[in-house]
Amino acid sequence: MAKEMLNWRSFAKGRPIREKWNAGNPGYYIIDPQGVIRYKWMGSPGERAIDTALEKLIQETGQK
């Protein structure tokens, strides 16, 4: 992770995954603790929308 300068875990060779998920570039999914898709955006909705959704869901699930 340090080598790639990424502070999040990433699937290498992600192209088949992207094709299977028909994801845009960029594409975003937010998944809740039960594994359910709660938010989805193809194309960036803006940082604020992503942060708001994450904060709402984290608060809802009591996660820290």
């Binding site: 998920w21 975003y28 603790p33």
Partner: peptide, 21 residues
């Protein structure tokens, strides 16, 4: 992952996950 370690999306069940393509 980028370090060659095997992992699954379901490893993160119980957490809120942002999946970014």
């Amino acid at each position: 992952d980028q370090d060659g370690k095997h992992f699954k999306l379901s490893d993160y069940r119980g957490k809120v996950v942002l999946l970014y393509f």
